[in-house]
Write a protein that binds this DNA or RNA. Structure first.
Lengths: 202, 202
DNA sequence: TTCATAGATGACCGGTCGGTCAACATGAAG
DNA sequence: CTTCATGTTGACCGACCGGTCATCTATGAA
């Protein structure tokens, strides 16, 4: 069981690391196979194409996120606004750890892939969009609860949650470009100041 | 004079369009040459390598930006906060026009390149970082003036301007992933709500 | 008229790309 | 013992990659 899927898992995690650290186009299947100690023929036994591999990598990482520190950060027991800080912190420490090890900030795998391939591959684009929408929903929940608890004046939670996700991705983009995770820490807390007012019902 | 540089210019503008619409790695020199109606040998007469071409493309677009709608948006005669709206508007209309023509949102060339190659090529990364820093300075100016005019309570203009740029890039990223320029219009105005307070002097 | 220089041409290079395939190993079910 | 499914192996494919180069042409100064 676990042995059967071991090869597949090795391919998947190797591909994830390489795609994240460089880019989709820059990483070849040969390189993935070599590092994962898998033969090329075996690769194509599990994944029909490089695109399918990318799909699986996205699913894989989205799952790990959802059950990992995203679940922690958006813990229902945490005060809603603290969850935002937690999320920023988690992003910061993650990127910092990666930079300390590899010397470079990998940024957000989803953001990286989105900008690289969403003009070329509509299927992958749609999948990445779904990941972002799911992430946005976490912000949405937190905002709803913050409003309910009176911690924040009423606002357009739908739009604001999307804006917060955009801000997070933007900060990571800027930090990666500066190769300096501190950007996340310095700018991140401003996420709580973002507000989009409710549209006036005429 | 203009004839001499015509070939170079054709290469440059063709490369810009292709890099912007797809990605750096996905566009080959052969394709650029074909579209620009230039022979490969001629290409390498003007550009020593693909990396040098990328440098030139970034410079080229940064120049066109600086003297184009960025200069318009950050017109000193405009009220500072209106400049922010102008910038969002400009981004929106640009992306919308591009999508109407090509069917896909290209996003921001600088953001695209930054995420794709800043882990692989430190020279290009540094250049893109410089572009962002220059852009951030425009926001900085506007914020300084807004504070001076009392339109906004005092704040950390340095950090907030960087946050605003991050937000802009993040919005474009999200819009590109959704392939829907309206995201820029819907979330963009929240840029004015971003605030990073001045650090307390102990 | 000569000569140097800038530019244009297209064949060519080794290497890598994503992907295919026939042959073979393994192990469980009949 | 046979059959079949699952998985492994590595040679192989044509296309394309970034980049090189010898050769030719056009131009303008001396």
């Amino acid at each position: 069981m676990n042995v059967e899927h071991d090869t597949r898992t090795r391919i998947l995690s190797t591909a994830r690391v390489l795609f994240h650290g460089r880019s989709y186009a820059d990483v070849g299947i040969k390189e993935i196979c070599d590092l994962a100690k898998v033969q090329k023929g075996s690769f194509y036994h599990f994944f029909p194409s490089k695109q399918d591999l990318a799909m699986a990598v996205i699913d894989d990482m989205a799952d790990e996120w959802a059950h990992g520190f995203v679940a922690e950060a958006f813990d229902q027991n945490l005060p809603p606004l603290e969850r935002l800080d937690y999320m920023i912190d988690a992003a910061y420490y993650w990127q910092k750890a990666a930079k300390d090890i590899e010397g470079r900030m990998p940024g957000c795998l989803f953001g990286n892939l989105a900008l690289e391939i969403s003009t070329r591959d509509d299927v992958l684009r749609a999948k990445l969009n779904a990941v972002f929408e799911k992430a946005s929903r976490r912000f949405h929940e937190a905002l709803d609860q913050a409003v309910e608890l009176g911690e924040v004046p009423p606002l357009d939670c739908e739009a604001t949650s999307a804006a917060m996700l955009a801000f997070l991705e933007g900060i990571i983009l800027l930090a990666k470009t500066r190769n300096d995770p501190e950007v996340i820490r310095d700018l991140g807390p401003a996420i709580k100041t973002l507000r989009i007012e409710l549209a006036h019902p005429n």
